[in-house]
Design a protein around this nucleic acid. Structure first.
Lengths: 242, 242
DNA sequence: CCAAAAGTGTTTGATTTACACCCATGG
DNA sequence: CCATGGGTGTAAATCAAACACTTTTGG
């Protein structure tokens, strides 16, 4: 912040003469589709990286915060009036050469939402598609810019936050069963969890989920009780990745 | 990132015509002084907020990353050739009106280092001073810009990271005793920990600390064994804040 | 009645917590 | 020899992991 002119600064350096930086908000938007953790990507229509897949995002406008820019982009990409899911700042990527055109600092965001009807025509992103994240690795799909690094940071953040927050509820459409909630952990962590112990852990945490009183009768087997998210995303004792 | 020109964008909007953003790196630099968690602040020499205390920091230069900018500022403020402590990105603060002069996006960093001979003359920051963080709150010392929010985010990050990483070793000059290390946790968390149990926890974690074989004979009572940091900052089972 | 999934009980072992106790030094 | 802090031992309580078992539905 402090813009004091420094004795040690290079010849004639003054803040006002600095070449401009561009700032973008790029979004790692995750959901669960068919039991797999999936990320929304858009096909780039222009150079550089024309035709390659990239994270949705765009330039931050002068009068809006980066978070507002991310929410705006998200609404455009999903075709919804406003983005209702969870949105948090992830990390800022600022390698001076991450964009070949100019100096662009990217404030990356992490968004989570339950599986939706896909981004449709009329939205900004005709070329938008969900990719299962394991599919990306297997099929060696490269991402534009440093977006592979951004995605990796997002996946790591999600995996860690599941452990000690109730964030997993963002991925499941309400009302949900405890088993559906458990599938989120299993997909993100790539392991299986003991159904009984998981159930007890979640129900023993006040505020994690709220029973609706209803049951899901569509499946085979004993009908499962339905729950909604407890409210605010909260911290709690860890669900262990065993 | 994607700079596709959008149908929905405002009239005539093109990325190239965007008013420039300035980008700064601001640093929450923490140390332990006289058993208290302390933060380095500098007195602002110019408007706005002239005379008020602010976090050290400055504008990012076109050819350097924000991390490099932070490390450079840090070296200048501490008067050292290079900053040797721990430095990590904290969070980006981007409220459009956080700086009254222009649109400034601040990429905040968190730095930790053992108590040093104070920043001296010859350094950039003649007006730099350490403040115990509890003193700041008690004496109602306001910070310039949104630096109070940045500091708060830094303190929260440190408190959380102590729990599951070996970061505390950054705060103590080597070689250190287990008790000195425990004092870091006690100061940051504002609680007291059982000395015996703490000792066992740390020593049971491979790679947390390394015994030097020496003992500290300067204190009263039985001499304490001395240790150095185990190497890289690492994850480990939690030290519980009980 | 059987298969399948939900949900509960229970045993075993590990971890945490609290606190008593011994050790090594300076004064 | 005593005060002081370093360091170890240990029993009780709590928690996690594994897995057997009961419940409730559809076919």
């Amino acid at each position: 912040m402090s813009n004091k002119s420094k004795a040690v600064a290079p010849k004639g350096y003054r803040a006002e003469e600095y070449p401009p930086f561009a700032v973008t908000a790029d979004i790692v938007m995750l959901t669960m589709r068919q039991g797999r953790l999936s990320v929304l990507l858009v096909a780039r229509g222009e150079e550089p990286y024309k035709g390659e897949w990239a994270l949705p995002g765009g330039f931050v406008r002068p009068e809006e915060s980066c978070t507002e820019a991310a929410a705006r982009e998200l609404a455009e990409e999903t075709g919804l009036d406003s983005f209702g899911g969870h949105l948090e700042q992830l990390q800022t990527f600022d390698d001076p050469v991450r964009d070949p055109r100019m100096r662009v600092v990217s404030v990356a965001y992490l968004a989570m939402l339950p599986d939706l009807p896909l981004p449709q025509a009329g939205s900004d992103a005709a070329g938008a598609r969900w990719f299962a994240v394991d599919e990306l690795a297997q099929e060696n799909i490269g991402l534009a810019f440093d977006h592979a690094k951004i995605l990796e940071a997002g996946l790591e953040r999600v995996a860690n936050k599941l452990e000690y927050t109730s964030l997993a509820t963002c991925f499941v459409p309400e009302p949900f069963t405890i088993t559906e909630l458990r599938h989120v952990y299993e997909a993100v962590w790539g392991i299986s969890l003991d159904p009984g112990n998981f159930r007890r852990k979640v129900l023993a945490t006040p505020g994690f989920v709220q029973p609706t009183g209803d049951s899901a009768a569509d499946r085979q087997g004993r009908p499962a009780s339905l729950y909604t998210a407890g409210g605010e995303t909260m911290l709690h004792p860890p669900i262990l990745r065993s």
